[in-house]
Design a protein around this nucleic acid. Structure first.
Lengths: 213, 213
DNA sequence: AACTGTGAAAACTTTCACAGCC
DNA sequence: GGCTGTGAAAGTTTTCACAGTT
């Protein structure tokens, strides 16, 4: 298989979301042009992205919505349910825990950890917040595959080292810090402050040089 | 000025964060190599990124930490305090409201809106959650410049249209949906489900073809 | 006629490599 | 000697444009 870029994978996720909406509305065929306009890209880009994984469309017709949903779910590894642990039961952790879009795509949070003794023992919608100290054992017992790290920046690398040692190979990181992990472990960082600074840059540039995008 | 790419701006934010840590630790000089290794990029990339905005370093020596902090803050538009409104007082809104890194970089949340009558009137750390209906007036009265949209996907476009009509030109969007805005309005979307699907893709690919990055 | 799949071209981003300065 | 600033080269991603299929 050819090499597939990060932005391509992001767009595939977007297409999948749109396709699921279309399927919901009983639309059964869609063109690359339609997918493009709904996802803010171009028809050629949609076709190129999909063509990296096979030929799913019918010339003259477009793509079958149900088929493409199935294909994209397979490509993105969303046919199985992933077992997820949440490390850090603060506000960001709570937000994620309640985030419906996670569950819907098959990401099941099956353990929550925190160091704070006042949080340990709390019931979160049927799950009990567990002490950080027993994390490794619980991860193994429950076959957790993905961890969401929602702890303060200074604690993040330590947590990640323990997760990696416990065999976790996928990490979604909310701590605004660079994380070092060995090859074979995948980290995605969600950095809200960084996006906000991107806005700040764009807005102040518009003030300085009106007309710039 | 030359055109500056999105990834460059993201890296500048990362450099700034590192530089502030270095300044905290009273380090006064740093090389591109050092910045690069701490931010997961290359020395050439650091120098190229900075050189787009001026010549800040000293050959043979490196960069002055305090000077570079000042310069980057100016470049990113972080010298002023931005007035921010939060639309949606759910869990994601609450997480953002308490997020220290926002406040620290000068993003001050000065209004919170929600449609839910049980939320309206709640005190959030000194701020009162206000009814969505009065949003436009409050935005204007308080001179709000940036809005954070943390409402359900189906409500997001409607909210954004109202924000744009009220003169907001910068939006940080947490709703997993494509938003249409006129030219001159900047939207950054934080999409956690999308990042999670990126992890799913990477992990299931490793299972299928071991050894792939 | 409508629309996909895809090589080739264009645009963009990163890396290299070295001259120039401290 | 150490390190920056930067043109030129390499690599990557997007767009174009059209042959091919239904």
């Amino acid at each position: 298989m050819k090499k597939v870029s990060e932005p391509t994978i992001g767009r595939l996720s977007v297409y999948l979301r749109l396709l699921m909406e279309l399927a919901e509305a009983d639309v059964d065929t869609v063109s690359s042009e339609e997918l493009a306009s709904r996802s803010g890209t171009t028809a050629a880009q949609v076709r190129k992205d999909l063509s990296l994984f096979g030929t799913f469309g019918k010339r003259g017709l477009g793509y079958s919505v149900p088929e493409l949903v199935t294909r994209l779910r397979a490509i993105l590894g969303l046919e199985k349910a992933w077992r997820v642990a949440l490390v850090g039961a603060g506000r960001i952790g709570a937000a994620l825990f309640g985030y419906e879009n996670f569950r819907r795509q098959g990401f099941n949070i099956e353990a929550v950890f925190d160091t704070d003794p006042t949080k340990v023992g709390q019931r979160w919608n049927g799950l009990v917040v567990e002490a950080d100290a027993g994390m490794e054992r619980v991860l193994e017992e429950r076959g957790i595959e993905i961890a969401v790290v929602a702890v303060p920046a200074r604690a993040a690398q330590g947590v990640v080292d323990r997760l990696v040692a416990a065999g976790i190979r996928g990490i979604l990181n909310f701590a605004p810090t660079q994380l070092d992990v060995p090859a074979g472990v995948v980290v995605k960082t969600v950095d809200m402050a960084l996006e906000m600074e991107g806005l700040s840059y764009a807005l102040s540039r518009e003030e300085r040089e009106p007309g710039a995008a």
